[in-house]
């Protein structure tokens, strides 16, 4: 039922000629980008390092303000509705270095994903902790419930970041290099998990510089280079056009 509702929703994300320029910079990090993503789509954005993939994700969830064009998510203009939009978007940030002595436990980091959903001046209740536990089970990290985050390996930390987004129970997932630091087995597990999430209904946008990591359930591919979209379409269309080879100079994925 939920999956059908999600797919019926018109354009979940729409960007029209959107450019984003970082403060103090002249050259846009993304340039006149047009994107239309519908409810239930699984879009993979590929491109070399520095092509604007992360900027695009952060423009969509409004962490970065676009400087020209028009962007909307869930039918709401992004800049003026940033907070409301972000409460419905689960963001898996690109893996960052964590202080080994960092005083945060895994359960608290995963719960922090629900902070906006719970709302101001309200405390997490049993349902919220159930959602946190369920998310950690889904990424296979339930045994690290009270583990300090600084004691995790890079791959384990990545799974906790994914669990954090799952706990938010969002309508849209923005995943920035979700396979970073994962071994082959973990990549496979996360790939299956992403497919499972997609089947349940939410919209997924995944960024990767590695074409071979694109899950087979991906419905659309967008290729970026130097801040612009240089190709898009179904996986087959994009691969056959050769645009990925040109942008990345990499071997073709086995899709």
């Amino acid at each position: 039922m939920r999956a059908e509702q999600m797919r019926m929703e018109d354009e979940t994300i729409r960007l029209e000629r959107v450019s984003t320029v970082y403060e103090g910079e002249r050259i846009p990090a993304i340039r006149e980008v047009d994107i239309s993503v519908h409810g239930g789509d699984f879009v993979c954005i590929v491109g070399p390092n520095g092509s604007g993939k992360t900027t695009l994700l952060e423009t969509i969830n409004g962490i970065l303000r676009y400087t020209s064009g028009h962007g909307s998510v869930f039918g709401m203009e992004i800049t003026s509705n940033g907070s409301a939009i972000r409460k419905r978007i689960g963001y898996v940030i690109q893996n960052f270095e964590i202080d080994p002595l960092s005083p945060f436990l895994c359960k608290n980091v995963v719960m922090s994903g629900r902070t906006g959903k719970i709302g101001l001046l309200r405390f997490p209740e049993a349902d919220d902790w159930d959602a946190v536990r369920e998310s950690m089970i889904r990424v296979g990290m339930e045994r690290w419930w009270s583990r300090p985050i600084g004691k995790l390996s890079g791959g384990e930390f990545q799974k906790i970041l994914i669990a954090r987004a799952l706990a938010q129970e969002p309508d849209v997932y923005l995943l920035d290099e979700p396979y970073a630091n994962l071994d082959i087995r973990s990549r496979h597990e996360i790939s299956e998990l992403l497919t499972e999430i997609h089947v349940a209904g939410p919209t997924l946008l995944m960024v990767s510089h590695d074409v071979s990591s694109i899950p087979s359930s991906c419905t659309h591919i967008i290729v970026m280079d130097r801040g612009s979209i240089v190709g898009s379409g179904s996986a087959t269309e994009v691969i056959e056009s050769g645009v990925i080879d040109k942008a990345l100079g990499m071997r073709r994925p086995n899709l």
């Binding site: 972000r86 963001y91 994903g113």
Partner: peptide, 13 residues
């Protein structure tokens, strides 16, 4: 305090 960008992404001002 865990991560400012993630906090912002969760809808916190």
């Amino acid at each position: 305090l865990f991560n400012r960008k993630l906090a912002e992404a969760a809808g916190i001002n």
